[in-house]
Every structure is written in structure tokens, then in C-alpha cells.
Design a protein around this nucleic acid. Structure first.
Lengths: 211, 211
DNA sequence: TCATTATAGATTATCTATCATAAACGTTTG
DNA sequence: CAAACGTTTATGATAGATAATCTATAATGA
């Protein structure tokens, strides 16, 4: 879904470790020892180091010279930061995607919406959520922007999983998504963008109920 | 200024190659052979491959499996893409930075402005330009957003250098920057944000005078 | 004849295995 | 508490193996 870098050993390792970090299987600040990982993936330390550089660029690990890499810490401030970045960038993307939206694009968006309704676990819900937002902006044909948004979505999922782990989780409504799709079907781009921005802020508010 | 990853060999190589790509010394689509670069930097291929992964994350090179990496192509569409991303993100950053701006921050912004006025070459101008925009948003204390903006600034510089190479360059006015600083001194954040967004769009219009 | 295809050799990316060095860490002393 | 020592670990070098790609030449067919 995100990247098909699974052609090289380094890409495979980066993808596998990245998934573990996002799912929470690897805890924040956990050290990643390169020869342990190399043994696990039946490789040498060279592709492992390449994978570390890739994960570092995604902000999933932090590297300190001569002390290796650790899983990136989770700090509550990044919830707001990521939400603000997503709100700003997804609106730009949607505004560029809207004129190119075909009925097949709309069908794909609706499919993600329906899958979100059917989600029973937080993992299923997050997968559908990512699919919805991705389908919404994919037609904009701005590769750099889409790559940024993919990274922000992954970082957001990591935060969602971490918070669900401490606060529990119950199925949520997709009413926001449904209204956005309605606005797009009505060709009301301004409303769709405004709903999208507000929707992302809402997610942030769910995360920080006190503020 | 951008990153102090010069503690490791891989970081040094990535920085050096990145500068060559941005300056235009390395042409788009030029192949980067890992053992040539290793010889040049008196290293083995291991840190070179790490540097490639880092440059790939910055969109400065593209890698195709089993065929190595090449300097990323320059396409005219990315001018608009980068301008839109910068406009959206810098406004977010400035809005978060404004409440924290001290007089020392304002002095640093003004210094970059004055250095831009004194710039005689496009290299000097771009350096001052980057310093201005960086100083403008740095106090927002949003590390992920600042990293994104740094990458976008570098990509923008690469496009500016490439276009100057074909169309020539003459010193430009910093009137936009001056007005933004004035608005900030007057604590008029809304106006500063609006001026900043328009300023970035203006740069895009300079790049594509036909549209 | 000309264009296309097949083939052989050279180049190169990718990765393994092993080793060397130095920094960081933990433990045991003085 | 602090210094010394051994262990662990990151970083990188070196050599070599494999396989994919590229180039140039030869062969084939229209």
C-alpha cells in the first residue's frame, strides 16, 4: 500500500521494522541492534544500515552517531504538529485532485468509506482510514506532496495505535468522511476542503480531550 | 545550516553530493556510481549506499533496483508543486512561530533581509533567502514541519539555480520580505501570513512567466 | 541492404563474510 | 566516589560472489 521497496533486502527490512514501530510492537526508545536484525533477516549489517537511514528519513527512528539507532520517541506535541501539517497539505492536495476526480475515483473513495464502517478492530479501521484519505488526494498527481502525506498518515497511525493501547478503542463513526464524499459528488470543492480540514482537527481533538 | 550529519562518513558524502545536485554541478539523470564516489571520498561502498538512501529520501536522487541511482530529473511541474507545499506549510509554521517571536528573532530575520539586499550572485541571494525563511519559522518549535520546510527550500533552490542557468539572473528586490517583517513587528500575524503565502506564489509566477 | 535479434564480454549493483578500530557501557576495584 | 578494565556495539574496510544490465558485435530474416 505505501511503498513497494520490497525488491531489495534493505527495502524489505525497512518495511518490516517500520510496520513494527507503527503497530507499537517496537516500543519508543527501544534500541535497534544492527547485527541482531541482520541475523533475523538472514542478511549482513550492510542492508540493515541502509534500512536504518530510510527509517530515519521517515522519522520512525532516531540515530545518534556511534550509539546506533533507537525507535523514535512518542511525544504528545507531535499529535498537534502532524494534524496541522496534514490539514494544510491535504487541503492543497484535494483542491488539485478535485477537478480530476472521475466516477471511478469516487467509487474507490466510497469503498474505503464502507470498509471503515465494517471495521471491527482498530487495525482495520486505520487501514480503511488511510485508504480513504489516500484515495481522496491521489488524483492530484503531485508525487512529492503524496509522499509527504503518506509519511504523515503513517506517523498518525502510530500515534493512534499508541493512544488506543493506553485508552482503549471503540468503533467510531465515519460521518465526516461521508459528508466529504457528498460534497465532492455535488462538485462543491470549497465545502469538501473545509470539511476535510475540520475533520483532521477533530481527530486531533479526540487525541487531546483536555485542551 | 541545513544538517550537521557530518559526523559520519555517510552523512558527509550525502551532504557533499546533495550540494552538487542542488548547485547543478551534477546534471539531472546523471548516474551516480557507488565505487567511483567511494574512491573519491576514500571510503568503501558501505557509507556510499547509506548516503544514497538519505538522498533518495530528500528526492535528490532516484534509485531503480539493480540499476543504481541517478540524479533526480527536473520537471517543470514540481515548481508549482513545491510552491504550493511551501505556501501551505510556511503559513502554518509562521502562525505557530509568531506568538513566540522575540526581538532577537526579529533581528535575525532582519539580518537575513539585509544580506539578501547585499547579494551580488544568485548563490548569495539564495543563501540569504533560505536564511530569511528559516528564521521566520524556526521559533515554531515543530521539528517535523521544519524538516519538511528545509527539504522544500533545498528543492526550490535547485530549481532556481537550474532556471537561472538557462534564463540568466539579475538581483531581485526583497520588498516582499520587508513587508512581512513590518507586519510581524506590528504584531499583525494575519497580514504577515497572507503576505508570505502571496510571496511564495509570486516566486512561482517568476518561474513560469507564461502561465 | 537494412533492421531486428541473438550472443558474448564487460560493467556494475547488491549482498555476504570477516576483520579492524574506536566509542560507549557496565562492572569491579582503589 | 572515581578510575581502570573488559565487553559490547557501531562504524567502516576489504575481498569476493552473484546476478542483472549494458555494449558491441555477430547472426538472422524480410
Amino acid at each position: 500500500m505505501t511503498d513497494d521497496e520490497n525488491t531489495t533486502t534493505a527495502g524489505r527490512i525497512a518495511e518490516a521494522i517500520g510496520e513494527r514501530i507503527i503497530s507499537g510492537e517496537l516500543q519508543p526508545d527501544a534500541p535497534l541492534r544492527q547485527d541482531h536484525i541482520a541475523r533475523e533477516f538472514n542478511s549482513s549489517h550492510v542492508p540493515v544500515r541502509e534500512a536504518f537511514r530510510q527509517l530515519q528519513a521517515q522519522h520512525l527512528v532516531v540515530a545518534v552517531p556511534r550509539r546506533g539507532v533507537r525507535v523514535a520517541p512518542l511525544n504528545i506535541n507531535s499529535v498537534k504538529e502532524i494534524a496541522e501539517m496534514r490539514a494544510a497539505l491535504e487541503v492543497v492536495a484535494l483542491r488539485n485532485a478535485a477537478p480530476k476526480l472521475t466516477s471511478s475515483h469516487l467509487a474507490r473513495i466510497e469503498l474505503a468509506l464502507i470498509e471503515g464502517d465494517a471495521a471491527q478492530t482498530i487495525q482495520e479501521f486505520e487501514m480503511a482510514n488511510r485508504a480513504f484519505h489516500h484515495a481522496l488526494v491521489a488524483p492530484c498527481a503531485m508525487p512529492r506532496l503524496l509522499a509527504s502525506l503518506d509519511g504523515l498518515q503513517l506517523a498518525n497511525s502510530r500515534l493512534v495505535f499508541a493512544m488506543a493501547r493506553s485508552s482503549g478503542w471503540r468503533p467510531r463513526s465515519n460521518q465526516d468522511h461521508r459528508l466529504i464524499l457528498q460534497a465532492l459528488r455535488a462538485r462543491n470543492v470549497d465545502q469538501a476542503c473545509s470539511l476535510l480540514a475540520r475533520h483532521i482537527q477533530t481527530i486531533e481533538r479526540l487525541a487531546l480531550p483536555s485542551s
